[in-house]
């Protein structure tokens, strides 16, 4: 039987959750014996080459590209997992949800204290740039997510336990120390 295939991506996240995956330390050797990786920033594969078993999603959806990638993952992965607070509830990027989008852009490109040399008073608006959404959305409000691993980042032990449980079909151990929101 072929190994289960894992894909990962970072949407509106900071890559902290991917770093936490690496925090499983030497267990990573065990992991590559257990699974194959497809599309992921870890191996730099940009496009899906086959249907995957598990998709790990870091970050919420803040722009049209995030939504596109997330839908692509839903199409190609049998199980999708929200990894981290940003995927679960928007996280720190969602702190802009109470501020109108125009105000955010004006602060970033026109009025902010660190803005320099924007004499034409331009806010980037090229069609090539993914368009920002009105709010940052949790992944499960865009597509169906099967599991959620909270934490900022989720503890490496939590990610490890979840992966092992998914791959082996066993039950997941959830000691008190591993489920944290920060």
């Amino acid at each position: 039987m072929s190994k289960p295939i894992v894909a990962t991506t970072s949407l509106a996240g900071c890559f902290g959750c991917h770093m936490s995956v690496l925090d499983i330390d030497e267990r990573i050797l065990e992991l590559i014996d257990l699974v194959d990786f497809d599309k992921s920033p870890v191996n730099d594969i940009k496009k899906f080459s086959r249907t995957c078993d598990i998709g790990l999603i870091e970050g919420g959806c803040c722009n049209s590209e995030n939504v596109h990638v997330l839908k692509d993952f839903r199409e190609h992965c049998k199980i999708l997992v929200s990894v981290g607070e940003c995927a679960i509830m928007g996280g720190l990027p969602a702190m802009r949800n109470g501020i109108p989008l125009r105000e955010c852009l004006e602060e970033a490109y026109l009025n902010g204290p660190t803005v320099q040399n924007n004499k034409l008073k331009l806010i980037p608006n090229d069609p090539e740039i993914p368009i920002l959404l009105d709010k940052v959305y949790p992944c499960h409000e865009i597509v169906k997510m099967d599991y959620h691993l909270p934490g900022c980042p989720p503890r490496a032990d939590l990610i490890w336990e979840a992966l092992i449980a998914l791959v082996t079909g066993g039950e997941m151990k959830l000691p008190y120390e591993v489920v944290k929101f920060d």
């Binding site: 949790p138 691993l149 920060d182």
Partner: peptide, 28 residues
């Protein structure tokens, strides 16, 4: 409300968060 635990000064000492831990809330 807007409960951004990763950015909150009370995180770790918050009773609401502690209850969510106790009842293993993964996602609302």
């Amino acid at each position: 409300g807007n409960h951004f635990c990763p950015a909150c000064e009370k995180s770790g000492n918050c009773e609401l968060q502690a209850l969510a831990y106790r009842y293993t809330m993964m996602v609302p």
